[in-house]
C-alpha cells in the first residue's frame, strides 16, 4: 500500500509529480488545514506538509503512522514539536526558502510608511489629490534603520538597504559581523532608529519582547515593521503607542491573532499599513517551499536524514 501524505492545495502543483515518482499517495487538503479536515482525510498518513495551522498533541496521538511534519515555511511555533520528538516524529522546516520574499516585503513596508503610499493612493482614487499637503512624506536616505534579528531574512533586508544610503543598526542574540550595518545593544537600537524591522522567531525569550518599555524608548517619529510573528509584539501596547503618538506608525504582516479580527483596533488606525501574513507567499517562494518541504517528507519516509530537522 502506498504511503499517504497530506499536502495543502497551495503546494500541490509543484510537488504532485515528484511525490508520485516516489510512490507516495498524495491527498490534497485546503490551505486552512483545520484539525477536523486533516484527521478525516489522513489519520493513517505518514507525512503532513503543514502551513500555519496548529498541529497539536491530540492530532499527533490520532495519527499513529506519522513520521514527519514538514513545515512549509520557517516558523514552527504552531507545531507541538517537543511532543512530536517524544513520539519519534520528525519536524522539519524550509529555512531561507522565502527569505528574499519576506525581506523584500519588509523593505516595501518601510518605503510605503515613509511615503504614505497606501493612504495617498487611496485618497487619490477617492478624488483627493491634496492628501500629501496635509501628510508630508519623507526620504529614506539619511535615516537609521534598526534590524532586530540577523538570520536569513534580517541579513537580506540589510543587503537590500545597502543602496539607499541609510544607517543600519543590528541587534542579534549573538552579535555577528556585517558589512551592511553596526551591531548595537537592544536599547541603542530602539532609541536611535527611525524604522525598526523585526526578524526574530517567536520563542519564550522573544514573545512580547516589544512592549510598552520599547515603545517608550522609540522616537515619536519612528515606525515599526513586523514580518516575524505577531506574538513578538505586545499588540495592546502597540495600539496604545500608535494612538498616543508615542510612535508614528506601523507596517504589519503578522498579528497576535490571525486572521486579524474584524473588530481589531489596528484596523481603525490611519497610521498602520496592514497585510494578511502573505509576505512569504510569492510564486517563487511557494515553489521553493513546496519542493523543499516535499523533499524533506521523502527523505524521512525513505529513512534518510532530513536536511532541516528542528526537533
Amino acid at each position: 500500500m502506498a504511503n499517504k501524505v497530506l499536502v495543502p492545495q497551495i503546494a500541490v502543483p509543484y510537488v504532485k509529480d515528484d511525490l508520485a515518482k516516489h510512490h507516495l499517495k498524495m491527498i490534497s487538503t485546503s490551505n486552512a488545514q483545520k484539525a477536523d479536515e486533516l484527521l478525516s482525510k489522513g489519520k493513517d498518513a505518514v507525512a503532513v506538509m503543514l502551513l500555519g495551522a496548529p498541529f497539536t498533541k491530540d492530532m499527533i496521538d490520532q495519527m499513529p503512522n506519522l513520521k514527519v511534519i514538514s513545515r512549509f515555511g520557517v516558523g514552527y511555533d504552531n507545531v507541538d514539536y517537543r511532543y512530536a520528538a517524544k513520539k519519534g516524529i520528525k519536524v522539519t522546516n524550509t529555512p531561507g526558502a522565502n527569505a528574499a520574499s519576506v525581506a523584500e516585503a519588509a523593505v516595501t513596508d518601510i518605503l510605503i510608511l515613509s511615503k504614505h503610499s497606501y493612504s495617498i493612493s487611496k485618497a487619490m482614487r477617492e478624488g483627493d489629490n491634496d492628501y500629501v499637503a496635509k501628510h508630508p512624506t519623507n526620504e529614506l536616505a539619511g535615516k537609521t534603520v534598526g534590524i532586530i534579528g540577523f538570520g536569513h531574512i534580517g541579513r537580506m533586508v540589510a543587503k537590500m538597504l545597502s543602496g539607499f544610503n541609510v544607517n543600519v543598526l543590528i541587534w542579534n542574540r549573538h552579535p555577528k559581523q556585517s558589512q551592511y550595518g553596526k551591531f548595537v545593544d537592544w536599547d541603542t537600537l530602539l532609541k536611535q532608529s527611525d524604522f525598526i524591522t523585526l526578524h526574530v522567531p517567536a520563542t519564550p525569550d522573544t514573545i512580547h519582547s516589544i512592549s510598552t518599555n520599547e515603545f517608550k524608548m522609540m522616537k515619536d517619529s519612528a515606525h515599526i515593521v513586523n514580518f516575524a510573528r505577531g506574538s513578538v509584539i505586545d499588540q495592546k501596547a502597540l495600539v496604545e503607542a500608535l494612538k498616543s503618538g508615542e510612535i508614528a506608525g506601523a507596517g504589519l504582516d503578522v498579528y497576535e491573532k490571525e486572521p486579524l479580527p474584524e473588530d481589531s483596533e489596528l484596523r481603525k488606525l490611519p497610521n498602520v499599513y496592514l497585510t494578511p501574513h502573505n509576505a512569504g507567499h510569492s510564486y517563487e517562494a511557494i515553489e521553493r517551499m513546496s519542493t523543499r518541504a516535499a523533499s524533506e517528507m521523502e527523505r524521512v519516509i525513505n529513512n534518510e536524514q532530513p536536511k532541516w530537522q528542528i526537533n
Binding site: 523584500e104 516585503a105 523593505v107 516595501t108 511615503k115 503610499s117 497606501y118 493612493s121 499599513y273 497585510t275
Partner: peptide, 14 residues
C-alpha cells in the same frame, strides 16, 4: 517603492 508594490500587489492586498 512602486516596483515593489506592483510585485507584491501591496495596495490591493492591503
Amino acid at each position: 517603492c512602486d516596483m515593489l508594490i506592483l510585485a507584491k500587489h501591496s495596495y490591493s492586498i492591503s
